[in-house]
Amino acid sequence: MLPKHKWMIWIVILVVTLIWGYAWILMKSALQYMGPFTFSAFRFGTGALTMLIVLWLMKVGKPPKGKWGHLIIVGILQTSIVFLLVMYGMIFVEAGKSSVLLYSMPIWSSLLAAKFLTEKIPYMKLLGLGVGLIGLLTILGWDIWAKQDSRVIFGEILIIIAAISWGASNVYYRLKFKGVSQLQVNTYQMVFGTLGIILAAVVMEWGRPISLTTESIYYILFTGVLASALCFTVWFMLLSIIDMVTATISTLLVPVFGMFFGWLFLEEELTVSILIGSSLILSGIVIANLVKKKT
């Protein structure tokens, strides 16, 4: 179980968002070695296998019978839809901007949580969320609204749909998995989600060349074992101990780290809008966490 001291929780969040931010570079780079669906199948197949081994070593049993249908739904929402749409969208959209679009997820999670979980959003958290989203739009720049190729717009729409699906899975998890081990949830949702991805890869990319090199295998292992198996297990744990808005606002750090790693490793430009937008995101996270517990 995660520690309940606030500073320790934030260290955990920082590590998770760092890993996810770095993973975006690997996801984009992997497209030169194989199709987007094939890479996702390798990634989540590796992640699911890792989780099954962990459950076996820890002698964790199967989830309750009544939860299997819910696990399939979360697997489709959290793994199949999100990463099929994101990986396909990245064919048309840069890695940095892809991460920014996906991490519009907090607004969808917050709205759905308010509707279905009756979670009230305190004023300061709402303000922090708004500031963070303005930061995302600042990073994207005005070219998201004009002078874009239709294929780029198509890719961006796919990634936004993925963000909505992720937000829905967060809320569904809170509704249906109280008292269920997060290890069980992440393992079996990933298994079912991976089956959907494999089906898509077979239908859409059968016969396309696959280049398994030291580099591409590293991409698969890092994103499968760390960014998927480890980080999504920790993510479900976070959702079980802190409120939805705080958890999801914290993920706004991911595109900030993604942009930084893009500059560091891919020599992508750090523009003024990226720096200003990143500052707004960090400010939004600070503002959202100024809320007192009594709220």
Score class of each variant (00 low, 15 high):
Ala229Arg: 06
Val191Cys: 11
Ala229Met: 11
Val234Leu: 15
Ser228Cys: 07
Ile217Leu: 15
Leu226Gln: 11
Phe192Met: 12
Ser211Gly: 02
Phe222Pro: 02
Leu230Cys: 08
Gly207Ala: 02
Leu226Lys: 10
Leu226Ala: 14
Thr214Ile: 13
Met204Arg: 11
Ile220Ala: 02
Phe236Gln: 12
Ile217Lys: 05
Ile210Arg: 00
Tyr218Asp: 13
Ser228Val: 07
Ser216Ile: 06
Cys231Ala: 14
Phe236Met: 13
Ala227Gln: 07
Gly196Ser: 08
Thr194Asp: 08
Val234Arg: 08
Val202Met: 02
Thr223Glu: 02
Cys231Met: 10
Phe192Glu: 07
Phe232Asp: 07
Ala227Leu: 05
Val191Pro: 06
Leu212Gln: 02
Thr233Val: 09
Ile198Val: 15
Thr194Asn: 13
Ser216Cys: 02
Leu230Glu: 09
Ala201Glu: 00
Val225Thr: 10
Val234Asp: 03
Leu212Thr: 00
Tyr218Ala: 15
Glu205Thr: 00
Leu230Phe: 15
Thr223Met: 12
Phe222Thr: 05
Val225Ala: 08
Met204Ile: 12
Ala200Tyr: 09
Val225Glu: 10
Glu215Lys: 14
Tyr219Ser: 07
Gly196Asn: 06
Ser228Tyr: 11
Ile217Gly: 05
Phe232Asn: 13
Gly207Arg: 01
Val202Pro: 01
Met204Val: 13
Ala201Val: 00
Tyr219Ile: 10
Tyr218Ile: 15
Val203Lys: 03
Phe192Val: 10
Ser211Glu: 14
Val202Gly: 05
Glu205Val: 00
Val202Leu: 08
Gly193His: 08
Leu195Gln: 11
Val202Trp: 09
Gly196Leu: 08
Trp235Phe: 15
Val234Trp: 07
Leu221Val: 14
Arg208Asn: 14
Trp206Asp: 06
Val203Ala: 03
Thr194Arg: 09
Ile210Gly: 01
Ala227Cys: 08
Ile210Phe: 01
Ile210Ala: 04
Ala201Pro: 00
Leu195Arg: 07
Phe192Cys: 06
Ile198Cys: 13
Ser216Phe: 01
Phe222Lys: 04
Phe236Trp: 12
Thr223Tyr: 02
Val202Cys: 03
Met237Arg: 13
Met204Asn: 12
Pro209Lys: 01
Pro209Ser: 00
Phe222Glu: 03
Ile198Ser: 11
Ser228Phe: 08
Gly193Pro: 05
Ile197Trp: 07
Thr194His: 08
Pro209Thr: 03
Gly196Thr: 04
Glu215His: 12
Thr214Pro: 10
Val234Lys: 06
Ala201Lys: 00
Val191Leu: 11
Val203Leu: 12
Leu230Gly: 09
Phe222Met: 08
Thr213Asp: 01
Gly224Trp: 03
Gly207Ile: 03
Val202His: 02
Tyr219Phe: 15
Thr233Leu: 11
Ser211Ala: 14
Thr223Pro: 04
Gly207Leu: 01
Ile198Ala: 13
Met237Trp: 12
Leu195His: 09
Phe236Leu: 13
Met204Gly: 02
Glu205Gly: 00
Glu215Ser: 14
Glu205Cys: 01
Ile197Gln: 09
Leu221Gly: 04
Pro209Asn: 02
Phe232Gly: 09
Arg208Gly: 11
Ile217Pro: 02
Ile217Trp: 06
Ile217His: 05
Val225Gln: 06
Gly193Met: 09
Thr214Ala: 15
Glu215Ala: 14
Val203Ser: 01
Phe222Arg: 04
Ile197Asp: 06
